[in-house]
Design a binder for these strands. Sequence first.
DNA 1: TCAGTCAGTTCCTTTAAGGAACGCCTCGAT
DNA 2: ATCGAGGCGTTCCTTAAAGGAACTGACTGA
Lengths: 168, 168
Amino acid sequence: MQRTQFGAMACSIARTLDVIGEPWSPLILRDVYAGTHRFEQLQRGLGVSRKVLAERLNWLVAQGVLTRREYSTRPVRHEYLLTDKGMELCDLLLVMVRWGDRWTAGEAGPPVLYRHHACGRTSQVELRCSACGEPMHATDIDLLPGPGADSPDEERLDVPDVGASERL
Amino acid sequence: MQRTQFGAMACSIARTLDVIGEPWSPLILRDVYAGTHRFEQLQRGLGVSRKVLAERLNWLVAQGVLTRREYSTRPVRHEYLLTDKGMELCDLLLVMVRWGDRWTAGEAGPPVLYRHHACGRTSQVELRCSACGEPMHATDIDLLPGPGADSPDEERLDVPDVGASERL
DNA sequence: TCAGTCAGTTCCTTTAAGGAACGCCTCGAT
DNA sequence: ATCGAGGCGTTCCTTAAAGGAACTGACTGA
């Protein structure tokens, strides 16, 4: 498949995809978050091939999203736990859940409900502006080049410039 | 690659991935959101192969995330626009941006800034509970089986049961 | 008439996913 | 002590998908 590496792009979306964009990675994250920490359980629960699971776990550990913790010496056995970095990635899962619930759940309704500790109620996440606290959606936003933008280009805001050769 | 279909799983994350989980799809969505609507521009901006771009665009149109609008008869030319369903998917991009900015941007800082129309300030999205309005993160949540759950299993909450044969 | 634009499509090569088998270590029962 | 099962990978082969370049086809403008 010889897949393009997204990590080098000057775009936080591409760089996030570099970390969890591979097939299965978000589902592995979901299961670890939901309490499945061991290789065998993950493999059976997901139905993913052992080869891919091993690759993904190594990658996620290398990226600092998961940690490997020894839960048994002799034989040495590890389990996989979320780091802070990984736990924050789970916020992304919550937003995926909201969209999936809204647009793909259909008649049956959402397969999982989320109860908020603070208020004890079953609810969903909502996106709000960190500055004013009002709802903030993709429609309510202007894009501006930030300090990490790599090319002061015309109107191409977050389009990566990897090749940097054919400009046009 | 003979990839597993996620769409059939009883999990909103898996079903969302089925829609935009393929490589390039989120970046295509990003560019359409940022104002790139035509095949040629998308292809050049992303550096994706034309074959894959055509496949992805067809899929996203089929899923109702994008619409094809004719902007020229003779020759017939279409441009790609976000539907409401697609625009709501962009919320997901905003959350990816926040994580990417925080964990992958490094020294250079975020490549793109977001200005909130309502308050005019440059800010980020924040996740809050739709019921009580307080911050709501993956750490603040309990998972409960919902109406759309497919198997009243033990503790495996949102793990799909596609095989349904090997239970253990 | 000829180059150029735009949107795909086709073909070939390379790489990744699926899936099954195997390897290795250890514990527990016979 | 021997056998089987649990747990965690690794290896191998097949199949499918990504990359990339070339090609088609309908137009435009010089």
